[in-house]
Amino acid sequence: MKYNKIFGLALLAVTAAGFTACSSDDPDTGVTVITSGNTEKTPFDLWLTNNFNKPYNIDFKYRYEDIEGDFDYYLVPARYEDAVTMAHLVKYLCVETYNEVAGTDFTCRYFPKMFYTVGEWEYKNNGTFILGTAEGGRKIFLAGLNYLPDCLGDADALNYYYFKTIHHEFTHILNQTKTMPVAFQTVTYDGYVGDMWSEPPYNSGYLNNGFISAYSQHSYGEDFAEMLSIYITNPASYWNETLAKASTDAQAALNQKLDIVRDYMKSNFNIDIDELRDVLQRRQADVVAGKVDLSDVSVN
């Protein structure tokens, strides 16, 4: 399972740290990922000001601030270079994607006003871990940045661990702005199981119950966000191939829910989700092909 794989990576990282703890190398004091009262501006800080703060009023927080996290979990800072990479990816795959499809006015008005990043996932005691959350319609918490380098050449990995999460959480923010249609709640109303979504039989039989993912079964709000985020972060072939695996009744339920999501986005925000998917797929391909510079923090 992917949960075990990630947890193993975390343990490996801790072990590696133990082997290097006695090194005579001094730490790099030129860059800090911990917030302090006298933190000097880095080139990345200036880049963020010009690419997030000024044009969109978005605060991209990459330094560790305990008040921004959840005290129920052990968190670590994101590495500086990984935060730089993620900021570029958020700009290219999220902010500029919505600019292209819906216009900068939409992005400035609706896109979350804060990103807070940390290096590790938030592990739960049921074998799952939290990739990210949305808070109060204004903030997205994004975890696991220290595993980002291993995902850069793989669109599926980037989406699974990071960008489906961002688009999922952004959907929650849109739902807090424009109410989700009641009709969506009734399509598979008797299939929601709350936190039991990760347990048998729900973690494997979800498709034939009319759900696009296991987590969709948590609640209708999560179902709506999963429908939109999975639809746009995967190519058209994925949706067709997934539906082909479902029963006839399940296919009807999934298509009915997708139609409601499509109408919601079009009528409330004038966004065609097929166009949104096409633009995002093109941009994802650019990233995977190495056509996007993810390290440049120069300011013109």
Rank of each mutant, 00 (worst) to 15 (best):
L145C: 10
Y80I: 12
S216Q: 01
I173S: 01
A246Y: 01
V33M: 06
E96A: 10
P200I: 13
H218R: 12
M227Y: 08
Y161Q: 04
A78E: 00
N270I: 02
V292R: 03
L207R: 08
D156N: 13
A285I: 12
D286R: 05
D293K: 04
V84C: 04
V288C: 05
Y161A: 08
L276T: 09
N50W: 04
A78H: 01
T97Q: 01
T32K: 00
D28G: 07
H172P: 03
P149K: 13
Y215V: 08
D154S: 06
G290E: 01
F106N: 09
D59E: 08
P181M: 08
V118L: 09
K54W: 01
K139T: 15
L142R: 04
G137E: 02
D259A: 13
T233F: 00
N146I: 07
N146V: 00
G221W: 09
Y64I: 12
E199Q: 10
K291E: 10
A244Q: 15
I173Q: 08
A13Y: 08
T42I: 13
S216I: 05
K139N: 10
I58G: 00
A17S: 15
L11V: 12
G37C: 11
L276V: 06
A134S: 14
V118I: 12
Y110N: 11
V297C: 02
V95W: 05
P43I: 06
A285S: 12
K5A: 15
N126P: 01
N38P: 01
G210M: 09
D278M: 14
Y202C: 03
P149R: 14
D278L: 14
Q256N: 13
P27Y: 05
L148Y: 06
V31F: 14
A285R: 06
S219D: 10
Y92K: 07
D82F: 03
V299K: 11
L89R: 01
A102K: 01
N270D: 09
F269N: 05
L142S: 06
V90T: 13
G194W: 07
I130S: 11
F163Y: 03
A17L: 13
N175I: 14
V33N: 00
N51L: 04
L280C: 03
T20H: 11
N255T: 02
K91A: 05
Y192E: 00
E120H: 08
A253G: 12
L93R: 14
G119Q: 00
V95Y: 08
L12S: 14
N99T: 12
Y161M: 05
S247G: 05
N208V: 09
V193Y: 03
S198T: 13
C94A: 15
D190F: 04
E120I: 11
A214S: 05
R63D: 04
V297E: 03
K2S: 11
H172V: 08
T171W: 01
I130M: 14
G127M: 07
T15M: 14
G132Q: 07
T133H: 11
N57E: 15
A214M: 14
F211G: 03
R109S: 09
Y220K: 09
L228I: 11
V84R: 04
T29C: 13
V14I: 14
A102V: 04
A252F: 04
F111E: 03
D28A: 15
N126A: 05
S298C: 02
